[in-house]
C-alpha cells in the first residue's frame, strides 16, 4: 500500500464514494450486504474527510515517508 492509494482515496468525490467503496470491497474480499451499503458509504465519506485533515498536516512527511518503513512504536 502506498501514498498513491491515499491520494486516490482523498481525491474521491462524494458522488463517487460508493463506487470507490465497492471497488475496495472487492479488492479486500468483503461482501457488503445491500441493506448496509448506504450506511457504510456515509461512514467512508466521513473517514475520507477526517483523513484529509491528517494528510494535510503531514503533507511533507507523507511525500517522503508513507512507504518509508514501519512507524516506530509510540510512547506517550
Amino acid at each position: 500500500m502506498s501514498s498513491r492509494d491515499l491520494e486516490t482515496f482523498l481525491a474521491t468525490p462524494d458522488a463517487a464514494i460508493a463506487a470507490y467503496g465497492q471497488a475496495r470491497a472487492e479488492a479486500v474480499g468483503l461482501a457488503l450486504p445491500a441493506t448496509v451499503q448506504a450506511g457504510v458509504f456515509d461512514n467512508l465519506a466521513l473517514l475520507r474527510t477526517q483523513t484529509a485533515l491528517v494528510a494535510a498536516a503531514l503533507a511533507a512527511p507523507l511525500a517522503t515517508g508513507a512507504d518509508g518503513g514501519p512507524t516506530p512504536p509510540f510512547r506517550p
Binding site: F9, G21, V40, F74
Partner: peptide
Amino acid sequence: PAVRDRLLAGALLPDAVAEAAHRYRPL
C-alpha cells in the same frame, strides 16, 4: 448496526490511512 457500518467502512480504508494517523502522533 451502529457499529457494523463504521467497522465495514474502516475495512475499506487503505493502509496508508493508518500510516498517516500513526505518523501524526509523535508530532
